[in-house]
Design a protein around this nucleic acid. Structure first.
Length: 417
RNA sequence: GGCCCAUUCGUCUAGUGGCCUAGGACACCGCCCUCUCACGGCGGCGGCACGGGUUCGAAUCCCGUAUGGGCCUCCA
């Protein structure tokens, strides 16, 4: 039998990064098994539905690189069928009416158990399970009923979901049995926490996919990072392509304990991905990001800066401040070494051609003649030209800035000294 | 409170009874490289929650305790 899984977000808001990780495991498993991965929006509780959410969820998944098979389906679409089945259960004594609602009748003795693909055997005593409402008094079926019903309809073979569903599982199994259906394989993946051990939320940092996008992370890096939260390939492999991840993923290697989201490690990994990009790809992604952020800097100049920053930043949000001096005026501090600045201006006026290598040669010779150390002599020049103590390579920066502006800034800073 | 789950360096993890005086990665610290910042290289710090068993031998198996988390809604 071919594998079929489903990603089942509820449209109550933007897609949470923890949800993305759970969906990623579904997706990886399906793709690896050559199976199908469905997207089902669990909108049974219409009162909590947020209008934009459905579209936003799809955009977010696609951005990260997670797609699905067939059309997007909605839990509400099978409400009629669920209601029918509920009434059948009533007729057969597996459910009963209660104040206009319908409650599922749990078995009164024995246990329900299953072998969870990530946690092993889990067992509950039936007598402790409450008879839950499966159809509300207004006729709308509830999640815990429609979900297993949809799994039957969709012929889901593996239910891979967050560990917060563990305690729903015995009830869903009892419902499936009462309905005479076969059980899927269950795999409950661990939660993702913030650094205080509590559920990941706003106060820990970014949690919505959009926020990661705005910070300038590469989808491929986030994808790789998320895959490693609760899963590993072996004892030393960290960077893996989408293709490798698909090939190597397995539910057996998913750990049962919750993970903490480590933003610093994500930054490092994103830097790795950024550095491995071809220069033109890098520039392309960078331009796209700038456009999304509404930063309107000349494209050709942005392209020219790409090789200067590629080794130096780990996410695009660090880009604007790093190269701002090439696009806007600078305000260097007063009191820089006037002697060095004037000498540099004078020397740079002569440099031919105006290219990084020639500029470097000239400045190094000058530093030597002045009897200065490179590190001390280049500091005021950098400050005068870029307005900052931290910048891309000085010579490349000068080349890009252009002679005219470079001299202007050098002289202005000298005058202020 | 009840039920269920979890517990290896600060963090992500490797580890399925001897290969472990516990391996890798991020972070942190130091050194090297160096025009700043990064990158890269080298080195360092740092962990099996605790207590009992089982066994010739336990991070690995069992029991208990502690801690953390999830669920207990006519939410999903």
């Amino acid at each position: 039998m071919s594998v079929k899984v489903r990603m089942a977000p509820s449209p109550t808001g933007f897609l949470h990064i923890g949800g993305v990780r759970t969906f990623l495991f579904n997706w990886l498993f399906a793709r690896q098994q050559g199976g199908e991965c469905l997207l089902r929006i669990e909108n049974t509780d219409t009162s909590r539905e947020v209008a934009e959410a459905t579209q936003q969820i799809q955009d977010s998944l696609l951005w990260v690189g997670i797609d699905w098979d067939g059309p997007v389906t909605f839990q509400l679409d099978t409400a009629d069928r669920a209601r029918e089945l509920a009434h059948e259960l009533v007729e057969r004594g597996h459910a009963y009416e209660d104040d206009g609602a319908i409650r599922f009748r749990q078995p009164k003795e024995g246990t329900v158990s299953w072998v969870d693909a990530v946690r092993g055997e889990i067992e509950f005593r039936n007598e402790l399970l409450p008879d839950l409402v499966i159809v509300r008094s207004d006729g709308r079926p509830t999640y815990n009923f429609v979900s297993p019903v949809d799994d039957i309809i969709d012929e889901i073979t593996h239910v891979i979901r967050g560990e917060d569903h563990v305690s729903n599982t015995p009830t869903q199994i009892n419902i499936l049995r009462a309905l005479g259906a076969e059980l899927p394989v269950y795999a409950h993946v661990p939660n993702i926490n913030g650094d205080d051990g509590k559920k990941l939320s706003k106060r820990h940092g970014a949690v919505g996919v959009d926020e990661f996008r705005n910070e300038g992370y590469l989808p491929a890096a986030l994808f790789n990072f998320l895959a490693l939260l609760g899963w590993s390939y072996d004892d030393k492999t960290t960077i893996m392509s989408r293709h490798e991840l698909i090939e190597r993923f397995s539910l057996e290697r998913v750990v049962p304990s919750p993970a903490t989201f480590d933003y610093k490690k994500l930054d490092w990994m994103n830097g790795m991905y950024l550095r491995e990009l071809q220069p033109d790809e890098y520039a392309h992604f960078l331009c796209k990001w700038l456009e999304e952020q509404g930063i309107d800097w000349p494209k050709d100049r942005v392209h020219a800066t790409a090789p200067l920053v590629q080794e130096k930043i780990e996410k695009f949000s660090q880009y604007p401040d790093f190269v701002r001096f090439l696009f806007e005026e600078v305000e260097p501090p007063a009191g820089l070494d006037e002697r060095v600045l004037r000498a540099a201006a004078e020397r740079l006026a002569q440099v031919e051609p105006w290219e990084a290598t020639a500029i470097e040669e000239a400045l190094r010779a000058l530093v030597d003649e002045l009897g200065e150390k490179p590190r001390t002599a280049f500091a005021p020049i950098r400050l005068a030209v870029t307005g900052s103590k931290v910048s891309p390579g000085l010579f490349e920066s000068l080349e890009l800035l252009g002679r005219e502006q470079a001299l202007e800034r050098l002289n202005a800073a000298a005058a202020a000294a």
